[in-house]
């Protein structure tokens, strides 16, 4: 029981960390602000969710777990709200999203070298 518990804790903490770093890479790597929102979305859902889940399993059924759950609920409610606020503000300021066709044109003009 103890072993299974700590395996779950390990697995969720490490997977959550992995997803958080992947989301961070996405924020750095993706081409424009709208696509970067998706990278931030990964860290907010999967990263935060799995890390907090791991901590909750480590803690067991106590009042501290309730705080972890509350943090999770709060992140889950606010993350789409702030993502939508960023997207909406960018869109209404006239910033056009980089669409598929733009990407293809860019890739053909400078052989796809982008950081």
């Amino acid at each position: 029981m103890e072993v299974a518990n700590s395996i779950i804790v390990w697995a969720s903490l490490l997977t959550g960390s992995l997803f958080a770093v992947i989301g961070g890479i996405g924020v750095l790597r993706l081409p424009d602000v709208y696509t970067r929102l998706h990278g931030a979305g990964i860290t907010d859902t999967m990263g935060a969710g799995l890390i907090l889940f791991g901590l909750a399993v480590h803690e067991g059924f106590t009042l501290i777990t309730v705080k972890l759950v509350l943090i999770f609920i709060f992140l889950i409610i606010t993350s789409p709200a702030s993502s939508n606020a960023v997207a909406n503000a960018a869109h209404s300021s006239g910033l056009r999203p980089m669409l598929d066709s733009d990407l293809k044109n860019k890739a053909s003009s400078n052989s796809g070298a982008r950081s």
Binding site: V27, V33, A40, T43, A48, S79, V86, A90, S93, L95
Partner: peptide
Amino acid sequence: TIYDRVLAVNMFGT
């Protein structure tokens, strides 16, 4: 753009 910065700050905060 300024929105990239806001996005990054928000993510930093989470």
